[in-house]
Structures are given as structure tokens and as C-alpha cells.
Design a binder for these strands. Structure first.
Lengths: 138, 138
DNA sequence: TCTTGACTTAGACAATGTCCAATGTAGGAT
DNA sequence: ATCCTACATTGGACATTGTCTAAGTCAAGA
């Protein structure tokens, strides 16, 4: 059993076949699937799995912090299982490819006190955009 | 006539009543309306304006760089007319309020060469999240 | 093995956005 | 001032993404 499934069980989750396949689809560090893509891949192993179950499971994984929701394009949200090390995203404007990146320094440091308007700022999400080598070549 | 309408005319835009009211709704620095909110406000002045026209006009304003599309919550996109000075956004996790903020330094500087994977990186969008004074007090 | 509350399902519904054919009109041409 | 016509608008169908619910199913503890 993967670490993820084990952590889920530790949290008191019932380990159903549906949750297993969703977790298996997300297992790996470099996927950024939409809910529909997760559903398609899950359905390849468990054909009767419902869309709602995939949405439910993804939401639960997000709420317990095992998966991060990423919306880089204002379209479908993507689900990033690499939640254990904080990171940001680099997106190709051409093909939409998403890479995890690790900027140096604390992103919050760039926001001066005078620009905080009394907010308690706890987090910064950065999306870098550019052109990937393949799109630059093509 | 506002500067914005003048710039649009310079670009060869036909200045229809619909485009005028959309531009007027967006005129001002601190609005971050959704397309539906823009439509509602435009319809207050020009009741027969169609949703599609608002979407069209907003898309055109975005494509010529007069307005920036912001999606901070994975739900409806918001339209930010303050496109002339680059800025980032600070969002309250409680009430969703959005403020324009101006971080110090070049956001791209935080991404080391080794984290660029051969991309030509041209832009960084930062969303700071926190709690606004009102939500902290309540 | 039984029971039970949590999970899953199918499909209706909601929110947001896009597309198209028919109609209207801004602004240049006359 | 009027006419033309290419461009803009309209209304509504459709698409995409996500949420909700009632009824059935099942994992796991007793």
C-alpha cells in the first residue's frame, strides 16, 4: 500500500476501491490532472466509478492537505499531489505544460508592510509564465 | 470621453453604446468585477445589453491589454481595469476582497536559472492570501 | 456474520462561458 | 443628409466544469 493510502487510513478513511484508484492515479510527483482527467484514468481501472465520487475524493484530499488545487488558466482546476514540499508553478503559454518549481527566498518578503493594508498575509501563490523549449523550437 | 474610450477609438473600435457602458462600468481603479457583475451594472444603464456582448467586449479589452483577467478563486474570472501599472493581488480568505498591491523587486528574480527548465520566463503572477482587518475583527 | 453509518451512484441542476444565425447600426462613402 | 456594408449585437442553444440529492451499496467494527 502506498504511503498516501496509509495516511488516509490513519485518518479514519474507509478505503474503498474508488478512493484507491483515485489515489493511485495521483500517485507520482509530476502530474497536474484536471478532475475529468483523473476520472478518465480512474475509470480505466474501475469503469463504474462516478464523476461525483472523483470530485468528492479530490475535495477531501485537498481539504486534508494531501493534494493542492491549482488553477493556472481560469478553466478546470488541476490537482497536484506534490503537496509535501511547498512549490510554485511554471506554465508554458504555448502548450499549457505545468512544471513544479522552487523559487529562492520567502515569497511573502516581497510584499512591504505598507502594501499589506492591515491584512495578516499568510501565503503567496506564484505562477510563472513563459515558453517551454519545445514550443520555442516549434 | 474617457481616456479608455479614446484609446479604443484610436484602435479602430466602433464606439457602440454597449461598449461605452462596459467601459464606463470598468472605469475606475479598484473594481474587480466578474463578467456577470459587469453585465448587471451595464444593464442598469442599457437594459437590453446581451451577456454575449459583455463577454465579447471584455475579451477584446483583455486581448488589447486594457484590462487584466484575474482568477483568484477558480470560479468566475474577474476583470481588472488597472492594467497600466503592473501589480499583484492580495485576497482575503474570509470575504474574498481583492486589493491591488505592488511588491518590491522583480518577481522573476526569485526563480533561479536551474529552476527554469529551459523555459523563457516572461511573467509572474502572484496572489497573496491572508485575512483582512474586517474579517480578523469579526 | 451482521449492522450501520459512511460511501457511491446516476442524473438533475447550477454556474460560467462560447457559439451561431439573424438582425441592427456606426461611420465612411456618396 | 442619406446610403452601404462590414462589423457589432442579440437571444438562445450549447459546452464545460462543478455541486447536490435520494436511493442503493459496502467496509469495517461488534
Amino acid at each position: 500500500m502506498s504511503d498516501l493510502l496509509e495516511r488516509l487510513r490513519d485518518r479514519g478513511w474507509r478505503l474503498t476501491a474508488q478512493r484507491r484508484v483515485v489515489a493511485e492515479v495521483l500517485d507520482g510527483d509530476h502530474v497536474h490532472y484536471t478532475a475529468d482527467e483523473v476520472h478518465a484514468r480512474a475509470a480505466a481501472r474501475l469503469p463504474e466509478i462516478a464523476r461525483a465520487t472523483v470530485y468528492n475524493t479530490l475535495s477531501e484530499l485537498v481539504s486534508i492537505g494531501e493534494v493542492i488545487e491549482v488553477s493556472t488558466d481560469g478553466r478546470a482546476k488541476r490537482y497536484d499531489p506534490n503537496a509535501r514540499r511547498t512549490h510554485q508553478h511554471l506554465v508554458c503559454s504555448g502548450c499549457g505544460t505545468i512544471r513544479d518549481v522552487h523559487p529562492s527566498g520567502d515569497p511573502l518578503a516581497g510584499l512591504p508592510e505598507t502594501e499589506r493594508f492591515g491584512f495578516t498575509v499568510s501565503d503567496a501563490t506564484i505562477t510563472y509564465r513563459g515558453t517551454c523549449p519545445q514550443c520555442a523550437a516549434g
